[in-house]
Simulated assay, not measured.
Amino acid sequence: MNKRKRHVADVALKLFVEKGIQQTSIQDIIDRAAISKGTFYNYFSSKNDCIAEILEGLRYDASQLRMQIQVGKKEKDQQILAQQIYSIIQLNEERSLYALFDAILSSNEIDLKKLVMQHRIFELEWLAIRFISVFGEEISENAFESAILFHGMLQHLLFTKRVTNATFSLHRIVAVLLQYIGLIIPYMLQHNTSLIEPASVHLMRMNIDRKPVELSELMKMAKNIEEEENFTMEQEDLYEAIISELNKERVRKSVLQPLLNPFLTSFDDTSSKGQVQTFINAIWFYLKLK
């Protein structure tokens, strides 16, 4: 984003925080930024497009800030991770972004809600990757859930801090929550208490992205399962019935849907369960959009 375009986006962000998204008109942005209407539409096709650019700019700023903090430091250093998290929270607080996000999520703007949800997924994925760097590769399957737990605790503590004017610092909040996560993760691994399966995370991403699932994608998933798993007779019968129905010109949902759960449960206690779960989730999403 060039400097002038970024200036207009920054002006728009301040107006959205001050007045609210619905109450801020494009003319308000034009007047405050001291630009012409033609200049605004040269940069953005709509107010929603402007908000999309704002969120993209925020992700860019966050990534640059995190990289600056990381340069020359060890990835496993928990204090560096704490500093990265703290710096982004401080940036968001300074720009009143939490209020903006809350306003969007409580609005009727479906496209804007999707943008905020995508933004949050990006943040969770970044934190999950950093948790793996700090706590080790063995937590890979639990990293995303750990990121969700961290953010959940963080958001409620920040809310409490705002409404009570509590004196505890952001540094202390982040440091203590990372200590909590460091205790939770070994428990999750030892007792297998994870609540969110990798397939569920995949389905969440699909729902947020709203990218239609193509039949070719389903067939590729199915082929991978077939090649990697020695089917029992029951599994083979269910598999062939599912594939046959998917390939029909008019997919009969009433026929296909009852086949999905029995096929999935037939893989209980096998190493392919997660892969099959992802396949089944993709089929449900495919049927939902047809």
Rank of each mutant, 00 (worst) to 15 (best):
A103R: 07
N281Y: 13
L158E: 10
A62L: 06
Q78R: 15
P262N: 04
T265M: 12
T167A: 10
L112N: 02
I69Y: 04
T39S: 02
G274F: 11
A52V: 09
K161I: 03
K114V: 02
E93A: 03
I184R: 00
S146T: 08
A62G: 00
L65D: 04
R130C: 02
E234Q: 01
Q118G: 03
S25A: 05
S200L: 06
I110L: 09
L260Y: 06
D237A: 14
H151I: 13
L178N: 04
L158Q: 07
Q64S: 11
L289F: 08
I54R: 02
I283M: 06
I139A: 06
Q64D: 12
F101I: 04
S271M: 13
I208Y: 05
K37M: 07
L218V: 01
E109P: 00
F16M: 12
E137I: 13
Q78I: 15
V255K: 03
R205Q: 14
E228R: 15
I51R: 05
T278M: 06
H119P: 01
Q68H: 06
P198Q: 05
F279R: 07
L170W: 05
W126N: 00
I129P: 00
K19S: 07
E123Q: 09
Q70P: 05
V163R: 09
E145L: 06
V276A: 07
M67R: 12
L189A: 00
F16K: 05
Y286N: 03
L115Y: 10
E217W: 11
V8N: 07
S107P: 01
Q118N: 10
Y86E: 13
I280H: 03
L170C: 01
S194W: 10
N207F: 12
S63L: 08
K3Q: 12
P186N: 08
